[in-house]
Amino acid sequence: MSEQTPETPRSEPAPAPANPNLQRQRASQLAAALRQELQKALIGQSAVIEDVLTALIAGGHVLVEGVPGLGKTLLIRALARCFGGEFSRIQFTPDLMPSDVTGHAVYDMQSEQFKLRKGPVFTNLLLADEINRAPAKTQAALLEVMQERQVTLEGRALPVPQPFLVMATQNPIEQEGTYPLPEAELDRFMLKLRIDYPEAAEEMTLVRQVTRSSRADMLDVTPLRTLLQAKDILALQKIASELPVDDQVLDYAVRLARATRTWPGLALGAGPRASISLVRGGRARALLRGGDFVLPDDVKSCALAVLRHRVRLSPELDIEGLSVDQVLQQLLDQVPAPRL
């Protein structure tokens, strides 16, 4: 077997790791612990937790969509709690201005000069709550920081701290007075997650826990342990990005993204960012799974979340009442998986 992908040889001299396999195992254990901790806070949404962790490890942003009361904000708060870095939250409202997000220069009377006041965007975890309630210009304030990880204020490009993760939530119903996210903004989110109602048994557990809590109607996130710091996350991301990916799996990811462009049920296909996100997501999944390399299963399991906000349904199917997820599921059932 001579065909080795370029990633496979673990020969980077820079960090000089003691044993990459050991390191990988530790990373997987850490991820598993984080998952367990999050599941304590958010009951019955293990798939969503998995996806959020995927985004965290892959270094992508997440857009969470769901009806009210399913714990979208709770999930993010719980994650922020488990993570020792900075966390800030912006409640998007129709009168929110771009400078409220990025920051602005204010005149200081004492020192008689302009001082830069950094906005809430300078943080590790940013929760953009109800992002579609703010107009497009405010939403666009996030474009630069999401892609370039920097904010340009008063002509100066200021980097945001690493790791940087935007988690936005939005409500699919109640479209009155909302501003749908533009395609460019949507494309910058690596995953779009759908939170659905929990199973009956899980809902029972949830109700039992919430009613036991001292704060009447919400789950307490204070008892969660702080498991990892900012540098741990960076390490996790680095380990994930070094996981080997076979050419066939890479090819599978690219084929999936390309299939959306010619698929008859889709009016608009996904761009190259989708293929990139698929591979990154596959790597993160492999790490979460505890594997040493990426499988087609890893790519396929995050394909729906990666693709669903990057495609647009054709009007015929839209009229018929089909959802994007159904069409994408059909696509995933048709694109051949790699097997050599």
């Binding site: 087609p296 299963d297 995933l332 059932d333 051949p336 998986a337």
Partner: peptide, 9 residues
Amino acid sequence: LKSAHTEGE
């Protein structure tokens, strides 16, 4: 079995 099935499936 279909060709779209991965090993896990």
